[in-house]
């Protein structure tokens, strides 16, 4: 007697990682943030956050803009349209999975 395993939805593995999920979820309800806000919200170390942001940027999910506020360097982070769509897709997939 064979029992067919339930079909698992396709999760976006890039977003599925907890730290990156937290970053994307933090960026989702806002237009843009700086590095400090993201660091405080996600409670990640500078190095960790920087590394995860780079991966998200490579995937085209996040747009990083290096600029200055006065004389102080500033990194602005935004979720791209692709990143927003990916997060919505992830939420839908999770919803299907837990239904």
């Amino acid at each position: 007697m064979s029992q067919q395993a339930p079909e698992l939805p396709q999760f976006d593995r890039l977003i599925h990682e907890p730290a990156r999920l937290m970053i994307v979820a933090t960026l989702f309800p806002v237009k843009e943030t700086d590095f400090l806000f993201l660091q405080r919200s996600t409670e990640l170390t500078k190095g960790n956050l920087s590394s995860h942001l780079s991966k998200l940027e490579e995937a085209g999910y996040v747009n990083l803009e290096k600029t200055y506020r006065g004389k102080v360097p500033l990194t602005l982070c935004r979720l791209t349209a692709e990143g927003r769509a990916a997060f919505r897709g992830y939420r839908e997939a999770m919803k299907q999975f837990l239904r």
Binding site: P29, K31, F37, R40
Partner: peptide, 14 residues
């Protein structure tokens, strides 16, 4: 912003 960072609200934020 120098103390707690900067975040700008999305337009039409629910």
């Amino acid at each position: 912003y120098p103390r707690i960072g900067y975040a700008s609200a999305e337009r039409g934020e629910p």
